[in-house]
Design a binder for these strands. Structure first.
Lengths: 121, 121
DNA sequence: AGCGTAGGTTCCATTTGTGAACGGAGAATT
DNA sequence: AATTCTCCGTTCACAAATGGAACCTACGCT
């Protein structure tokens, strides 16, 4: 499905080589769900099932995103169990460097998207 | 196409009311192209054609994004010409508050996505 | 043997994005 | 006055991404 390397490039996936560093950053984390996976990593989550239940994203989109993030060096994939072979995903230094951007988004969300409480009846 | 308000909600468009402020921010700017439109606004661009040629996004996706950003108060739409009635899109205060997040992305892109120059032959 | 769990993959329907053409309204050119 | 140009979109057919559910593998538990 995703990751078919034979297709012609659309403008979106030319962003990785754009002149603008913001565009290049978005080529890595500009897809749906990706930034939220990174947020979950900052919150200490590391396993497939954790991300899946936390985000409600479908499993194969999650699978695709994790694969891309590992390919691009934002996450590292390590076996946390050998006998049932199981992997966890952890932020690399490159991934941890998203902290300032994430904080920027957090501050904006807090200020401009207040949680709507049900009207007290 | 987009903006049909009768459809059932998927997880993605429930983000606007998520407990996490990062998720709420992403519900506004987490779509493809949206953050790049905001970047262009910071760079002084304000008109439909400017965004379109700068980004290479298709016209009706651009049209959709601008509409959403105005609806959500990130951009303001003002007539800049009366006789051919034409509009421009400018950042509101709410939109300008994306500056820190944008800077975070810029710094990450500069550090971790260096521009590949063609090998000097 | 049968069930549960973690981490995926596969299938199909729906939604979103792309690419190109079309439209309208006024401006500028011939 | 007719044609062309510019700006800001809309519409259409097709391709790609996403959603939702089922399935699979390998192991552990009872």
């Amino acid at each position: 499905m995703e990751r078919n390397n034979s297709s012609k490039a659309s403008r979106w996936d030319e962003l990785a080589t754009d002149w603008c560093p913001v565009a290049r950053a978005l080529s890595v984390i500009g897809d749906r769900w990706t930034m939220l996976i990174i947020r979950d990593c900052f919150l200490g989550k590391s396993r497939f099932e954790e991300f899946q239940t936390s985000l409600g994203v479908t499993r194969h989109v999650l699978s695709d995103r994790l694969k891309r993030l590992v390919e691009r060096g934002v996450l590292e994939r390590n076996a946390y169990s050998q006998r049932p072979l199981r992997y966890e995903y952890r932020l690399s230094d490159k991934g941890r460097d998203f902290a300032p951007a994430l904080v920027g988004l957090k501050d904006w969300g807090k200020k401009h998207m207040p949680v709507r409480k049900p009207a007290a009846v």
